[in-house]
């Protein structure tokens, strides 16, 4: 597998960037998709956001300074794209983000691309109770096992704050599941 430095160098060269971009998509499409999916819930919306994320990545690769890992930089773009998407959708429907998420969860029960059982549906509802940023932290750590160090670069938050937030999130979710 090519390392990040090689891909980055190839992406910045006109001769190799097309192939390098394909490699990048192959390497990261699934991880970025699942990250986005847990934020926007619906598959079709996730597909749109994933497309936009890769377009932003290729458009802005020249601005990537290498201060962080390429992988965390891309996660950061994906996170921003997903949140911007949700904000725009809520604004378009003239509803709050909370109501939008509530509607997404209601649709989830009939979603052909959700095969979760009752407890998994409850878990999604429990996650929805958390503040937006805590949802991101929980999803990244619980499902994707992203290291706090990397998460710190993605969310621009200290590792200590992330650990504390995750700890609280897990407790809230356990409490929600036992009460409902």
């Amino acid at each position: 597998m090519q390392n990040e430095a090689t891909i980055l160098r190839q992406l910045k060269s006109d001769d190799t960037k097309e192939l390098a971009f394909k490699t990048l998509v192959e390497l990261y499409k699934e991880r970025l998709y699942w990250h986005i999916r847990k934020i926007v819930i619906s598959h079709d919306d996730s597909d749109d956001v994933l497309q936009n994320t890769f377009i932003k990545i290729v458009r802005n690769i020249h601005n990537f300074k290498g201060d962080s890992k390429l992988f965390t930089w891309m996660y950061r773009i994906a996170t921003n794209e997903a949140i911007t998407f949700l904000n725009s959708k809520a604004r378009r429907h003239q509803i709050s983000n909370g109501i939008l998420q509530q509607l997404a969860l209601e649709n989830l029960e009939a979603d052909v691309y959700f095969e979760g059982d009752e407890i998994q549906l409850k878990l999604q509802k429990a996650i929805a109770q958390l503040p937006r940023k805590q949802q991101l932290i929980f999803n990244m750590k619980y499902f994707d096992a992203i290291k706090y160090k990397d998460m710190s670069e993605i969310l621009d938050t200290s590792e200590g704050a992330l650990k504390a937030s995750y700890h609280i999130a897990v407790k809230k979710i356990k409490s929600y599941l036992s009460d409902n």
Binding site: F21, K29, L50, Y113, K122, L123, Q124, F143, L177
Partner: peptide, 24 residues
């Protein structure tokens, strides 16, 4: 918590990732 539930339950259409193309 993971002993109670550890997967999100989301899935994708069959062969979604194989057929995925980024339309630049």
């Amino acid at each position: 918590l993971k002993q109670t539930v550890s997967e999100s339950g989301f899935k994708t259409p069959d062969t979604y990732f194989e057929k995925l193309e980024i339309r630049l």
